[in-house]
């Protein structure tokens, strides 16, 4: 039987999205962090270096580094329409907020729990940015 977990956060950007989790416990660096044409992470030593966030549920603690952080997502959107399908964000700072507006994917944010204790790479995640719920089905 599949194990399902539901987390409750703040509904930050409305809508419902689902996909597989891409967990970035150290976020993504805000400058030179993503290749604009592909959405591929190019930050040296990143746990997902070389992978694209296209269609994934991106799980991050918050932003990191440069004010260009939202540009990590604006570039792939502008050039190729590539974007994360949804977001789960432990704490949404202003850089995350701008990214949410530019990308337009559902986001749930500002959790009391450590989200990385509950979501791992490859888990199936439904983000309900209207209700503020995140439903996680563990990878079997």
């Amino acid at each position: 039987m599949e194990k399902t977990i539901v987390l409750k956060g703040r509904p930050a950007y409305p809508g419902v999205a689902e996909g597989y989790a891409m967990c970035c416990p150290n976020s993504i660096q805000g400058w030179a962090g993503v290749e604009a044409s592909t959405g591929r992470i190019i930050e040296k030593g990143h746990v997902h270096e070389g992978e694209s966030f296209d269609g994934k549920i991106l799980v991050v603690p918050t932003s990191k580094g440069s004010c260009g952080w939202s540009g990590l997502f604006q570039g792939p959107m502008d050039l190729s329409g590539i974007r994360p399908a949804g977001w789960v964000v432990k704490y949404a700072d202003s850089k995350v907020g701008v990214a949410a507006v530019l990308v337009g994917s559902p986001m749930v944010a500002d959790f009391e729990e450590d989200i990385f204790q509950f979501i791992q790479d490859g888990d199936h995640v439904v983000v309900n940015g209207t209700e503020g719920t995140v439903t996680i089905t563990k990878k079997s």
Binding site: S66, C67, Q74, S94, A99
Partner: peptide, 26 residues
């Protein structure tokens, strides 16, 4: 508002002004 992250820290911390790191478009 500024597009330079170190300026956010400088202007909040040293000048006591108020601003967040936002982004180029914002």
């Amino acid at each position: 508002m500024t597009t330079e992250s170190s300026n956010v820290l400088f202007s909040n911390s040293v000048f006591g002004a108020a601003g967040n790191s936002n982004g180029v478009a914002a």
